[in-house]
């Protein structure tokens, strides 16, 4: 009975294949930091997205008779300087931070990873040129540039995502490229090339799956960075226009009342931001541990 030679190779291939990804996943989930981080993230997502389902208070409704009220049974986190309910503003502000942050991070990763893959795979003078461009871009102060873009374009959330993505991808290509340089020498890439695979195919099918660990770690960095940048821009009075709440604007407003001991205005947005970024960094750390141990 004739057995297809390719079938033998295929069967053999899967049986001896190192259990790379699944081992990494196991290491990730064995790390308590992963659980702390994911748990923290889940809580903040639930707070921002499910919170408004249970807590029906309009975050935009002002009330001149109840300004700067400390927490009461009716307003669990008190009210701000326009008499708006602070807890519901915290929830809605969280939605905005998370949605814009995640979208901007993913968009910037798409740009950064493609750039790194192309640069690493093509090599030669294109690679040199592309990396030199990165060196130059790294010397531009992002926050100053963001100030400029922000006043020039007065962004909606979508424009903000685009601006953030365009200014924050620059750190990613180097990480990806350095891995691509070693991966592209391996036999399976050579084999793929010998079968006549095109660059695009090699990038998507051979390189991308193998840099996925690094990409995931970098993504967590980008998400944390994007959320912080949005909050910073809002804190600077830019970013997204009022009245939609967001944590950065809430903090910069509360700064005027620092001397009044209005703790309910100052601590919640700052702690929520710290909580979110801390959770993401925990996940990031656990991911990095898993990726490092795989190598």
């Amino acid at each position: 009975m004739a057995v297809q030679p390719s079938a033998i190779i295929m069967a053999d291939d899967t049986s001896t294949m190192p259990k790379g990804p699944s081992r990494g996943v196991r290491i990730f989930f064995r790390n308590p930091m992963a659980w702390i981080g994911l748990g923290g993230l889940l809580l903040i997502v639930a707070f921002s997205f499910l919170g408004p389902v249970f807590y029906h208070v309009n975050p935009l409704a002002t009330n001149v008779k109840n300004l700067m009220s400390p927490p009461t049974a009716k307003h669990l986190l008190g009210t701000d300087d326009l008499g708006r309910d602070y807890l519901s503003r915290m929830m809605w502000g969280g939605q905005l931070s998370l949605i814009v942050g995640f979208s901007a991070a993913i968009a910037s990763m798409i740009i950064g990873v493609s750039y790194g893959l192309i640069s690493g795979l093509l090599g030669g003078w294109i690679d040199v040129l592309m990396m030199r461009a990165i060196d130059v871009l790294l010397s531009i102060p992002t926050l100053f540039l963001l100030l400029f873009l922000d006043v020039a374009f007065q962004p909606s959330p979508l424009v903000l995502v685009i601006i953030l993505a365009l200014t924050s991808w620059i750190g990613v290509p180097r990480l990806v490229r350095s891995e691509v340089l070693s991966i592209k020498q391996r036999d399976y890439v050579e084999a793929s090339r010998a079968f006549g695979a095109r660059n695009l195919h090699i990038m998507m099918k051979e390189l991308l799956p193998n840099v996925l660990g690094t990409v995931m770690v970098a993504t967590t960095f980008q998400i944390a960075g994007a959320i912080l940048t949005i909050a910073t821009l809002s804190f600077l009075g830019l970013g997204l226009p009022p009245p939609e709440p967001n944590w950065g604007t809430m903090l910069s407003n509360s700064m005027s009342y620092m001397y009044d001991n209005s703790w309910w205005l100052i601590y919640p947005p700052g702690l929520a931001l710290l909580w979110t970024v801390l959770s993401i960094n925990f996940v990031s750390e656990a991911l990095r541990g898993a990726v490092d141990s795989r190598m």
Binding site: T232, Y259, L274, V277, L278, N281
Partner: peptide, 22 residues
């Protein structure tokens, strides 16, 4: 350092003003 690393600069600034100045 992990806490500091996750801390937004402006939040750190506000806390420092609250503690050392106010």
């Amino acid at each position: 350092t992990f806490f500091l690393w996750s801390m937004p600069v402006f939040w750190l600034g506000i806390l420092v003003v609250m503690i050392f100045s106010i």
